[in-house]
C-alpha cells in the first residue's frame, strides 16, 4: 500500500478570512475610510435607518453605501436618492459577506474619496456574525416586532456587535417587547455593547446613535495604532 503523506494544517476555517479582514482594515486606515458593518434580520429597517443616518451625517462625512443582497437593486436605488454613493452587491445566493467580497465591493464603490463606508450586510442573524468583513465597527438593528428575546436565540450576533439599535420603538405599545429585559439580555452576551432605542421612520432617538457613530469615526481617525498590528 502506498504511503499517504499528511500535511498538518491546524488552522481555523475562519483564519484566512480573519487575516484578509485585518489587512483590509489596515488599508482602510491608511486611506482614512471608516467602514461600518450593519447587520440585522430582513425587514428590521436597515435601509430606513441608513437613509436617516445619511441625512444627519452626510454634511459632515462623504458617505458611501454597499447594499448586499441575494438579488435585486431596490436598496441601492433607495440609498442613491439620498445623494450618497451607493452600490448593490449580489452575493449569488450566499447568506453573508466575507472580507474578500467586501474588498471587491469597496473597489466597485470607488471608495477612495469616501470617509464613511457602510456595508449593509445580508439580512440574517446567523452567518454574517461569523465572518469578519474588515469593518472597524459592527452595528446591528433589532426591531421591536422581532421580540426582546433575540439576544438569547442568536448569541453570536450580539456578541460581535459594538452597538445594538432597537428600532421601531413607535410600535412598542402593540407588542410584548420589554426594552429593559432586551438590554439585559444583550449585556449578558456582550457587556461592552451599547444599546440605543430608535425609530428610524420618525427620527426619534436618532441623535444618540449619530453621536455614537461620529465619536467612533473621530476616535478611529485619531488613533494611529488601532490597526498597526498587521503588516500589509
Amino acid at each position: 500500500m502506498d504511503e499517504v503523506k499528511v500535511l498538518q494544517v491546524k488552522q481555523s476555517v475562519f483564519a484566512a478570512n480573519d487575516r484578509q479582514a485585518d489587512q483590509l482594515r489596515a488599508q482602510l486606515k491608511k486611506k482614512g475610510i471608516f467602514l461600518l458593518n450593519l447587520m440585522s434580520s430582513p425587514g428590521s429597517g436597515k435601509t430606513t435607518t441608513l437613509k436617516r443616518t445619511i441625512e444627519m451625517l452626510g454634511g459632515e462625512f462623504r458617505i458611501g453605501v454597499m447594499e448586499a443582497d441575494i438579488d435585486s437593486d431596490v436598496d441601492a436605488r433607495a440609498i442613491a436618492v439620498t445623494g450618497a454613493k451607493a452600490i448593490q452587491l449580489h452575493t449569488g445566493g450566499m447568506c453573508h459577506l466575507d472580507a474578500e467580497m467586501t474588498r471587491q465591493g469597496l473597489e466597485g464603490l470607488d471608495a477612495d474619496d469616501v470617509e464613511l463606508a457602510i456595508l449593509e450586510n445580508v439580512g440574517n442573524l446567523v452567518c454574517p456574525a461569523e465572518f469578519d468583513t474588515g469593518a472597524v465597527k459592527n452595528a446591528m438593528i433589532l426591531s421591536v416586532p422581532e421580540g426582546h428575546d433575540k439576544p438569547l436565540k442568536y448569541p453570536l450576533m450580539f456578541s460581535v456587535c459594538d452597538v445594538v439599535l432597537v428600532n421601531k420603538m413607535d410600535v412598542m405599545p402593540y407588542f410584548d417587547f420589554d426594552f429593559d429585559q432586551c438590554r439585559a439580555y444583550v449585556q449578558m452576551r456582550n457587556p461592552n455593547a451599547v444599546v440605543i432605542p430608535i425609530c428610524a421612520r420618525t427620527g426619534e432617538g436618532m441623535g444618540p446613535w449619530i453621536e455614537w457613530l461620529r465619536s467612533q469615526i473621530l476616535a478611529w481617525r485619531a488613533d494611529d495604532f488601532a490597526t498597526e498590528k498587521v503588516e500589509v
Binding site: D2, V4, V6, V9, V13
Partner: peptide, 15 residues
C-alpha cells in the same frame, strides 16, 4: 465551537 482544519492527506501519486 471549533471549526478547525486539522490535516490534509495528499494523494501519493499526485505529488
Amino acid at each position: 465551537n471549533e471549526m478547525m482544519i486539522q490535516e490534509i492527506e495528499v494523494d501519493p501519486e499526485s505529488e
